[in-house]
Nucleic acid binder design. Structure first.
Lengths: 347, 347
DNA sequence: CTGTTAGCGCCTTCAG
DNA sequence: CTGAAGGCGCTAACAG
């Protein structure tokens, strides 16, 4: 907190100026400018509107927030904006918020300390009305009690102890869709690059994999479930392990796109040609997927809708409406995007 | 703009509460809590501090902003947060801002209309003190006059008409470094996937390419400069054109990482093996680059520093300090990251 | 339908 | 070194 002199207040036009120009009281101008339900003589109304336009009046958000204790601003905390997955969530949330009259601001918490700092300065100090929190990693560095007590937060794509409302995708259905496709192609030895075991999205995706396998009557060797992680590095390492199995899988369902990229790299390095020697299907899609070698077959999840629903749920919560503790986004349904990383097994 | 009832004001503790608990006036409490220069009896000071801690006092940012007309919040407008390039810029700017006592909030402008909406609601309505604007695409949809008049904006990595201060990377030096490496490896027929001709970063990178070529006495066939664009798709198309040349290049310097990904895909599809048949070097690095097939040799630019310097420049501007119209980040210098997409020409 | 009055919570002269 | 008073710009309750 640097001690700096207050900024010059340029001749910003205030509500009072507009009112004066229109020859009315500030409160009247206020009412018209916010088009309150109250009816106002067509004439005065017009005068006020035109005065405001002439003067280029813009209401001061801080004064308004102070008075009404609503900022009409929402925050979205993301562990790392670069994650391909978040792009759509962010877009969906931003648009939905705007449709409801809110501005959505993002916080990148890739640096440690940012998450709790942002939470403090945005929620506690009242810069935003509520916050969307994406990812569990982030919440770990946050004081859960504060989080819950605030009553102004919604978790996106994670469920968390303590009963914060959360919005999640249908991880299980998505993963099933992917594994079913592998089965349909004729694969029977299908492994899973599952993601961290302590993250609930990962657990649900794994459950989807198991469900699909079991529905097809397929056995899952213990080593076929690799709880790698969600980074390229993790996918790389996990695939190395899978490739080292005495009986190697003919197909792999990967729980994240970053891990898939790493998996592809591991295959290349081990002389395993995808999809000839091994099919790979990725959970989550991204523009990048179409340009990899080979282009990645993927399960497209409705992430934009996830973001939008999360934003709407948050707004309902702030409005004091009753909200479900968990909202699962099932529409639109996950969609399979067939590209070049899958084919029938050669064996 | 949904008409909603005002939110419940929970028993937030105010400055007056702290003052009362400590048996002093609010103004005194204010002074202590902001540790103003003024000296205050050790005893009262301690009482106030402890009262604040006991009550869990947090100052209301809106009231403070209204009074002081400073929000201690900065905005960063990004055309698309998913762009691999922005991750580092964002991190750098976020951290630098925080070190100066500011919170940095991001705006994703991937949806049309978001940019001008955000500009209006953040800058004009006074939710932030100043704004960093990344990319020229974004500025196109903004009213330049407003932008300049605001006197509270800094352009990151673009220069713009109208004299807005801007902070840029040393595109020319970076590109030279990459092309020099290609030359060092023995290449002579080097093409350039240059990026859009109407974007100034692209022009500077192209200039770097030309400078390196000319310094080595190398000719540049007209068709070797392909003003593709910065997306995967653009890189793909551009590489197709390059590959179709009667005398094909043995190496390509690509002006962006996304285009490089597309270029790699085009090579694969045309049976051109990288780096055996063609070397590719990419301007800008990203974690992803190391996992592509082949891993991409790249020029790492100091993007985090770019973000940090931009944030600092903005703060100086807001403080009324004189700022340069253009600041070029030359330290640390661009760095070559040799990976698998470059080698000596076979010819 | 419009004006009057009274703050929202904080900071900042100005006295003492 | 500390308290008293005023106001940042806006909205909301109450009159008229």
């Amino acid at each position: 907190v640097t001690p700096t002199p207050p900024r010059q207040r340029p001749g910003r036009v205030r509500l009072a100026d507009v009112a004066a120009a229109a020859g009315v009281d500030a409160s009247t101008a206020s009412r018209v400018l916010r088009n309150e339900k109250q009816r106002i003589t067509g004439d005065t109304r017009a005068r006020i509107l035109r005065a405001a336009a002439d003067l280029g009046y813009v209401a001061n958000a801080n004064a308004r927030s102070l008075r009404s204790s609503r900022t009409m601003t929402l925050g979205l905390l993301v562990p790392n904006v670069a994650g391909a997955v978040y792009a759509d969530v962010i877009r969906g949330a931003t648009v939905a918020a705007r449709q409801a009259g809110y501005v959505m601001v993002l916080i990148d918490a890739s640096e440690i300390g940012t998450a709790s700092d942002a939470f403090h300065r945005l929620i506690l100090e009242g810069r935003v009305d509520g916050m969307l929190i994406a990812s569990g990693t982030v919440t770990d560095s946050l004081d859960d009690e504060l989080l819950v007590d605030s009553g102004r937060c919604v978790i996106v794509n994670r469920q968390i102890r303590g009963g914060l409302p959360s919005v999640i995708e249908d991880d299980e259905a998505g993963m099933r869709l992917g594994v079913d496709e592998l089965i349909r192609l004729g694969h029977r030895r299908i492994a899973c690059l599952a993601g961290p075991s302590d993250v609930d999205t990962s657990r649900r995706r794994l459950a989807g994999y198991r469900a699909a396998m079991s529905a097809a009557g397929l056995r899952i060797p213990r080593a076929y479930v690799d709880q790698a992680g969600y980074t390229e590095q993790d996918g790389f390492a996990g695939m190395q392990r899978l490739l080292g199995q005495p009986v190697a899988p003919t197909a792999v369902a990967s729980a994240s796109i970053a891990a898939s990229v790493g998996a592809l790299a591991a295959c290349r390095e081990n002389g395993v040609e995808v999809p000839r020697d091994l099919s790979i299907i990725s959970f989550h899609d991204a523009p990048l997927a179409g340009f990899l070698s080979p282009p990645l077959t993927a399960v497209h999840m409705p992430l934009e809708e996830l973001g939008a629903q999360a934003a709407r749920l948050l707004i309902e919560l702030l409005d004091g409406d009753p909200v479900p503790r968990t909202l699962k986004v099932t529409e639109p349904a996950p969609r399979l995007v067939a590209r070049g990383s899958t084919t029938a097994p050669t064996a």
